[in-house]
Amino acid sequence: MNYRAMEAKNNILRERTFAFAIRCINLYRYLVEEKKEFVISKQMLRAGTSIGANYREAQNAESTNDFIHKLGIAQKECDETMYWLEILQAAYLLDQNTFDSIYKDASEILKMIKSSILTTKQKQA
């Protein structure tokens, strides 16, 4: 992948993780105000907003290994967010359309992060 393609991919991931964090904030507000759910929604909020924060940290990594490490944290936070979303859906706190939409976003972000990690590791080898 050339530099421009990598830079475009990074910008897309930056935008996607930011937009996802906003979705998590809005979902948290809904869950607290409408469903009176405070515990699981807070966990989802923390993990969901952490993805983009860790991605931003990766952009300022001090080394390739640091970059991979920070992306690895973002990957874990994304997977954790998906877990909390699954719990919320299984507990009937999310309707199917809302769940499908936000879960799809999380899944796509997770794939992009994994791809970035693998590409970086391959370049490093």
Rank of each mutant, 00 (worst) to 15 (best):
L88N: 04
T81Q: 08
T49E: 05
L27S: 04
D79T: 09
F18R: 13
E77N: 12
T81F: 05
L85R: 05
D95T: 01
M82N: 13
K35W: 02
I109A: 09
A19M: 09
Y92Q: 15
E86M: 11
R46F: 05
I51G: 08
N11G: 03
S115M: 12
V39G: 07
E33K: 14
E108L: 13
K9L: 08
I22V: 15
I87D: 00
I109S: 09
F99T: 01
S41G: 06
Y3W: 04
E7D: 13
L27Q: 06
Y83S: 10
E77P: 09
E77Y: 09
E108W: 03
M1A: 13
A53L: 15
S116H: 03
L31G: 04
K114G: 14
S115D: 10
T120K: 12
F20T: 04
C78Q: 08
D66I: 04
W84Q: 07
N54Y: 09
E57W: 00
Q124G: 00
A47G: 08
K111Y: 09
L110W: 03
T49V: 15
I117P: 07
K121T: 11
E7F: 12
D79Q: 14
A74T: 07
A106V: 05
L110V: 02
K104L: 12
E37W: 07
L110P: 01
E80F: 09
I117A: 07
K9S: 12
I73G: 05
Q75G: 00
M82E: 13
A5H: 10
N2Y: 03
H69F: 09
D79P: 00
N2L: 07
F67G: 02
Q124F: 09
M6Q: 14
L13S: 03
E34N: 10
Y55D: 04
V32P: 01
Y30G: 00
K76S: 08
F99W: 09
R56N: 06
Y55M: 04
T49S: 14
N97A: 14
Y103W: 13
E33L: 13
K121V: 08
R46Y: 06
Y28V: 01
N11A: 07
I51L: 11
E37T: 07
E77M: 12
E57C: 09
M112H: 03
G72E: 05
K111L: 13
T98I: 10
S63K: 02
I102K: 00
S41K: 03
T119S: 15
N60H: 10
M1V: 07
L110H: 12
K123Y: 06
K35L: 06
Y55F: 15
Y30V: 01
R16V: 02
Y92I: 03
A61I: 02
T119P: 00
K76G: 09
L93C: 03
Q89C: 10
R46H: 10
I102M: 07
R23K: 14
T49R: 07
R56H: 01
R4G: 04
S107Y: 10
